[in-house]
Write a protein that binds this DNA or RNA. Structure first.
Lengths: 201, 201
DNA sequence: GACAGTTTGGCAGTCACTGCCAACCCGGCG
DNA sequence: CGCCGGGTTGGCAGTGACTGCCAAACTGTC
């Protein structure tokens, strides 16, 4: 239905899409503001909807769950990771590919300050953290088949590939935790390298 | 009536504790049965309470959340892991200690069949999996200081220690996932070793 | 057997989330 | 220009997890 004819239009025209875009941004912004201001658990959907000027029902149509109000769509994230890995040169190893994927993911944040604030929020809120971890393992699962291709030549089986992917994500998490502990000092990717070095050294 | 003469006091008698014990077992058993029978999301607290013969209110007093109805108390789990690591000989490395801890944790299951069923349930239910992952990272955090002691001599900093612990848990998860995929074939600890070998190879 | 401290059960209430339906709006048609 | 069709919005009622509160039931003790 809503497709085909208008692939070319300067930018997605349809007034609908534009207001939709505006609405999502307004909601996201309001949510983040309230979350950092008064805490995640202390902020109700009703309040966010009210202050963003939409109905609760609409808010839930835009974002399926309260947790989705933080940290962008899982789908987009998975796509970025898998595409980055896939685009890696054939002679690049699995570890390099994963590192490149994390680098790409990190570049999504608009500023280190915002990243810090967001990480802190997720890290300190049990329900948010659990939701994040859920997304994370789903990412791993999507990434697995892509990486298996890279690893097959060296006689690595699926179980081992899974361990490698899981380890990379684990070290990435450890790096962000350490980064958070240091209030954003240093570079996450450096911390990631150091952690991985300790593991693989 | 039942007074001093045969109280002994050896094992905490108090009728209260005994009924309490019975009740928790009844609830746990009922919950597991219903979960595996009709699925986690399809089973309501009301149904579990009804079939276990307690009120919802009481059920929530015994187990704080629906997720707690599966996979024992986090506290007990953390204690087992940290104690196992602590009891490891001084000359054992961090990796050996962690392996020993996982081995101890695995020995908690009454049978491989039950473990398989439980893992499957957790693995297939998003909310349960998220809850499990949350507990897992909290375990990691508790384990971190204990392991730092072991690692300090070799000039490993906190960030690196965190990466090592995270990696161990990640490989353990990968191993259980692979084990699950193979419907319980082989030994989880073997799979863990293989995964870790691929990572550290 | 009465008393004190717990535990239990029921009830009402909060909050995330869903299905349903009527009102609505944009974009295109005659 | 007005109307129509398909997608959108908002309100409303309902479900399910979870909590606070209070009265009733119970256990262990004197």
């Amino acid at each position: 239905m809503t497709q085909g004819t208008q692939g070319k239009g300067a930018t997605t025209s349809t007034l609908w899409d534009r207001t939709r875009q505006l609405a999502t941004e307004e909601i996201l912004q309001t949510a983040l503001r309230l979350f950092t201001l008064q805490g995640y658990d202390e902020t109700t959907i009703a309040q966010i909807a009210r202050e963003a000027g939409v109905s609760q029902r609409t808010l839930f149509r835009y974002f399926g769950t309260k947790e989705d109000l933080i940290g962008g769509s899982e789908e987009q994230f998975v796509t970025l990771l898998t595409e980055t890995v896939r685009k890696q040169p054939a002679d690049a190893g699995a570890w390099e590919a994963l590192r490149a994927a994390f680098k790409a993911a990190l570049s999504l944040h608009t500023s280190p300050e915002q990243a810090l604030e967001r990480f802190r929020l997720v890290h300190h809120t049990d329900s948010l953290r659990a939701a994040y971890l859920g997304k994370r393992v789903r990412c791993q699962e999507q990434l697995l088949p892509v990486l298996e291709a890279k690893l097959a030549p060296s006689g690595t089986d699926r179980g081992q590939a899974r361990a490698i992917v899981a380890t990379a994500f684990a070290c990435f998490d450890a790096a962000t935790a350490t980064w958070l502990e240091g209030n954003g000092q240093g570079d996450i990717l450096d911390l990631y390298d150091q952690g991985l070095a300790a593991v693989r050294g």
